[in-house]
Computed example of a mutant assay.
Amino acid sequence: MKITAIRATPVNIPLEAPYLWSYGSLAGFSKAIVEVETDEGLTGVGEAPSHAHAAIIETRLAPRLVGRDPIDIAGAEQVCVPSWQGVSNNIDYGLVRAFGGIEMALWDLRGKLWNRPLYDLLGGAVRKAIPVTDYFSFRGREGAFGGETTPEEVADYCLGLKETWGTTFFEGKFYTAEPGPSIRMLECLRETLGPDAMLRIDSNMAYGLATARRIARAIEPLDIRNWEDPCGSLYELKQLREHTAIPFSVHSLDLRQAVDLGVPDAVVTDIATHGGIGRTLRFVGACEQMGLDFWCYSGDSGIGSAAYLHLCAAMQHIREPNQSLFRMQPLDVIEEGPFRPRDNLVMVPEGPGLGVTLSPDRLRHCHRLFLDQGPYDKYHDPDRPGVFRRLPLS
């Protein structure tokens, strides 16, 4: 089998309503959907985390891979990506993440060729029902959706998820410059959902150390399961650890520094950030050896999400629920999507490879959204259009 063509299509994956976070307002995600075709009629699909990766894939990486054996993933990496030290030295993470989308498609191809689901290729499933969180935030309104602008409205939204879908695992944005509304939001959630609900929060590095200390004192009695990126560096987290027992998570890939400083307690990333499934497996193994938890973050199409569901099925160490924006995504590029959690669980897709089917019609629709709307600006500040927020907020 030989690779005959590689396509990367930029798409917009909208949210049903924009959520607010530390950098502004986010209406959705702009991704690149990857298709790797072969001379035996099989096509593998993958996903790169930015629309900008489409050009890298088609102009820089595809010419290196056409004509190669798609089963030789290590060889593909050798011709596409320099050593990790070289990448880090030149901060060329775009190249790594673009290749991660291709590498995902090569694993999908391997599963289709051997008629085995991805989790079998990774060693077999230790679980097939994957725990996830449902997301919350203050949100803008889009038609009949969103509009939760007060702590009480956010709590009512989450109560509706609990009553309709059985959700008891929740994660959301804690970001306001004046922490009071965010603190009150958590108080309302705990009062409304009861003591057994899991509450995790993500501040996206919004706060300076002094403010984070004050917040920690206020929210620790609320039994917060995890606080993601409260500050801008691991050094600040080390100092914040002296003032709270709330566990921390980050998106940083620097395990050596994390172990040296004693923070965070968990690392949260996506597959393409590491350059693909193979690198992610090694990273999760290193986290296990170093005593750090690991889970996946969300915001992908059904293709990237399927990859992380298979990863979680195969990796015993991924014990905590993964992030999920599934409930907020009204459409997808796959026939089977969007995924919808029930009782905090999503079943891993069965079938060869990733176990999902790229829909040509849905792909065209999401590509048309990209062409018509342009890429989503995740740093758009609705309060000050044209001006980027600067963190920490206080």
Rank of each mutant, 00 (worst) to 15 (best):
A32V: 02
Y235M: 11
Y93L: 13
S252M: 07
F138D: 06
E153P: 04
N12D: 06
M1L: 02
L331G: 03
D332L: 06
A258S: 12
T192F: 06
W21E: 10
N12Y: 04
A197W: 00
D69P: 12
P321R: 09
M315R: 14
S182A: 09
D229C: 11
A5H: 12
R141E: 06
Y235V: 15
R68L: 13
G353P: 04
R110L: 08
G100S: 02
S394L: 13
Q239I: 15
G353S: 00
I215M: 09
D293W: 07
E220I: 09
L106P: 02
G302Q: 08
D72M: 10
V132Y: 02
G194M: 01
T59A: 06
T43M: 06
L358I: 09
M347Y: 04
A206S: 14
G299P: 02
H251N: 12
M185R: 13
E37I: 06
M347N: 12
L42V: 12
I71H: 15
M104E: 08
H53G: 09
P230I: 14
H367E: 14
G208E: 13
I13S: 07
N115F: 01
G100E: 04
G302W: 01
V34F: 02
R116G: 00
Y207S: 02
G100K: 05
H317V: 03
D92C: 09
A286I: 15
A5E: 10
G386Y: 09
F294T: 06
G275W: 11
F136Q: 12
P195C: 01
D196K: 14
E58T: 07
L309S: 04
Q373L: 08
G46N: 02
K2S: 01
P82F: 05
Y379F: 15
K162P: 06
L371P: 04
V250R: 11
L209F: 03
S25R: 12
H51Q: 03
L199D: 00
G101S: 11
F29M: 13
N89P: 05
H274P: 11
G285V: 12
I102R: 06
N12H: 10
T168E: 15
N89K: 01
V11K: 05
E220H: 04
P117E: 04
A5N: 02
I334Q: 01
M104S: 02
G386W: 06
P14L: 00
